[in-house]
Amino acid sequence: MTAAIEISGLVKNFNSTPVLKGIDLIIPEGTFFGLLGPNGAGKSTTINIIAGLTLKSHGTVKIFGHDVEKEYKLTRPLIGLAQQEFNLDRYLTLFDLLVYQGGLFGLRLKESKRHVEELLLRFGLWEHRMKKHQRLSGGLKRRAMIVKALIHQPKILILDEPTAGVDVELRLALWEYLKTLNKEGRTIVLTTHYLEEAKALCNEIAILHEGSILIHDTKEKVLENSQGDLHNYFIHPPEGVAHA
């Protein structure tokens, strides 16, 4: 199977403090991949390097065989990133913001408007389309962030804590939608604190701890190793690193 994301020897130091200590990871196309770990493990740093928002210290990151730094013009349209922090432009309405976002990824105006309309309806945001982001609730902003990441129909969707702060009803609705996207063939990379979320959605899981991967395997095997409870990895991280 083609590797959607291929990371090898990835190192990131912040002011000589190592944050990622040589990560190797292959995420096959079509996988629903969960990147788990406690705060400060390096999850957000990893996905920001994949998306091109953080500079790596060493190693390589490839998207469908293309280097994210040297061939960024090829890799960036393949990735949609929904970050944990809301970063919606404060001057534009939700509709305009999303249409421009589509344009930034090379969609022509008509095409961009069509995608925006479809996604706003699908995510229950249509009636809020003329609002600026300051007037959207936390749950609506969270949905808007996901729509923004999907606007150019990327092959890889990266979600950093996508359901943080949303109510249970919306969380379940988002789960269903993400499952549908994955079934349609999209590779999804998810970081989450909600272990039940990873259990419900992912078919592969990697656990990051202090900048190293403790384990990377199928969900079933990871669960088996943790005696059915992923919390065990956070409470008692194993000494030996068990790679897939």
């Binding site: 960036r76 990133l81 432009d89």
Partner: peptide, 11 residues
Amino acid sequence: DYSIQDVLLTP
């Protein structure tokens, strides 16, 4: 407000 990232992510 990090909205610059919307541009940095583009091709």
